[in-house]
Simulated assay, not measured.
Amino acid sequence: MGETVRFGVSLDSDLLEKFDALCERQACPSRSEALRDIIRDALVQDSLHSETAEAAGVLSLIYDHHVRDLSRKLTERQHDAHKLIVTTLHVHLDHHNCLE
C-alpha cells in the first residue's frame, strides 16, 4: 500500500448532500473512506471488462423439490455445463424447499 496523498474534490452542493446521506446510510466513517470504496469498486469493475479478466460467480436457486422432474432437469443442466460448473451444493431448507 502506498503513501496517503491528500487531494481536493469540487462537487455541486446538491451532489455533496446526497453523497453525505449515502455515507450516513452506509455507516461510512468518513467521506475519504467512502471515496476509497467507490474508487476500489470502479477499479474492479474496469478490470472485469478486460479481455483477459477471470471471474467466478454463484447462482443460488430455491425450489420445491416435489415439482415433477425438476431435480433431473437441474442435474442435466449441470452436466451439460460441466466445464463451467465446478461444484454444487444441495441444502434441504424444509420439507418442500431446497437450495441448490
Rank of each mutant, 00 (worst) to 15 (best):
M1Q: 03
M1T: 13
G2Q: 07
R6D: 02
R6W: 00
R6S: 11
F7S: 03
V9T: 04
D12A: 12
D12K: 13
S13L: 11
D14N: 14
D14Y: 02
L15V: 13
L16Y: 10
L16N: 11
E17A: 14
E17F: 10
C23E: 04
Q26G: 05
R31H: 01
S32C: 02
E33C: 06
A34G: 00
L35S: 07
R36P: 02
D37I: 11
I38M: 13
I38E: 04
I39Q: 04
I39H: 04
R40W: 07
D41R: 14
D41M: 12
A42E: 14
A42M: 09
D46Q: 15
S47I: 08
S50C: 11
S50E: 14
S50L: 08
E51L: 08
A53G: 01
E54T: 15
A56G: 14
A56N: 05
G57A: 12
V58K: 13
S60Y: 02
S60A: 11
L61A: 03
L61C: 04
I62K: 06
Y63Q: 05
H65V: 00
H65W: 01
H65C: 03
H66G: 09
H66T: 07
V67E: 11
V67W: 04
R68D: 15
R68K: 15
L70P: 00
R72I: 06
K73L: 13
K73P: 00
R77H: 12
Q78G: 10
Q78C: 07
H79E: 01
H79C: 03
A81T: 12
A81W: 06
H82G: 05
K83A: 10
K83E: 10
K83D: 11
L84E: 05
I85K: 07
I85F: 00
T87F: 10
H90N: 12
H90Q: 11
V91Y: 11
H92S: 07
H92D: 08
H92F: 00
H92C: 02
L93I: 03
D94R: 06
H95R: 15
H96W: 08
H96E: 12
C98P: 00
L99S: 06
E100Y: 00
